[in-house]
């Protein structure tokens, strides 16, 4: 059984938003519905200045608060680690939106809740997530964390000391690992 995860290299994102629009196309989203977000941060004072973009999306937590609070079981964690919302069971109560510390869930026009799905249907057909394959700087790596030969496992092995998870203190155990500068 695969155990999917992602690495996001914080040092590479230039804030172009290609991930957002590629994902919208892949997942048939409307223009105001997005699963990818960028947080821009600025540091320093002129002329000693820098900025960075932090790409955010569903962290596919091992300990997902959205699943814990969902009254109908619509938010689920699959065996392969992917957290999904089953739209048929979702009643749109928004508990998961309140519970998610990453603020990456949206309310679809149809009334149910959605968020990044790791393009799982596409991945199962042999594809890769659209946010990853479109990126000009190669911010993301996606793959099977249980396969020691996968790109992502090799990257994690090499860069372990520079990886972090977002909001680690909340013990959500995200499956997206951020590589810091």
């Amino acid at each position: 059984m695969a155990r999917y995860g992602m690495v996001i290299d914080e040092t590479k994102c230039v804030g172009c938003y290609a991930c957002r629009v590629a994902c919208q196309n892949q997942n048939h989203l409307r223009e105001n519905e997005a699963y990818n977000y960028l947080e821009e941060r600025e540091y320093g004072q002129f002329p000693n200045f820098n900025r960075e973009f932090l790409p955010l999306q569903c962290q596919h937590c091992d300990n997902p608060p959205c699943v814990a609070v969902c009254p109908t079981g619509a938010s689920q964690k699959r065996k392969d680690g992917v957290v999904l919302v089953n739209e048929k069971d979702c009643i749109g109560c928004k508990y998961c939106i309140a519970a998610c510390p990453y603020h990456v869930r949206i309310i679809k026009k149809e009334g149910y809740i959605e968020k990044c799905r790791f393009c799982i249907e596409f991945v199962e057909e042999g594809g890769k997530p659209a946010c990853m394959t479109t990126c000009m700087t190669g911010v993301r790596l996606f793959g099977d964390l249980d396969d020691p030969n996968s790109d992502i496992s090799q990257f994690v092995a090499k860069n372990r000391h520079r990886l972090r998870v977002y909001k680690r203190e909340l013990n959500t155990k995200p499956r997206i690992f951020y590589r810091k500068a």
Binding site: A18, V21, N25, H28, E31, A130, T134
Partner: peptide, 26 residues
């Protein structure tokens, strides 16, 4: 049209697509 992806053979874009490419198809 559903989606587009970059052609890896192309030396201009080397397999990737920018936000404008994805957006403009609409």
């Amino acid at each position: 049209i559903w989606r587009i992806e970059g052609n890896r053979e192309a030396n201009g874009n080397q397999g990737v697509v920018c936000p404008k490419g994805h957006g403009y198809l609409h």
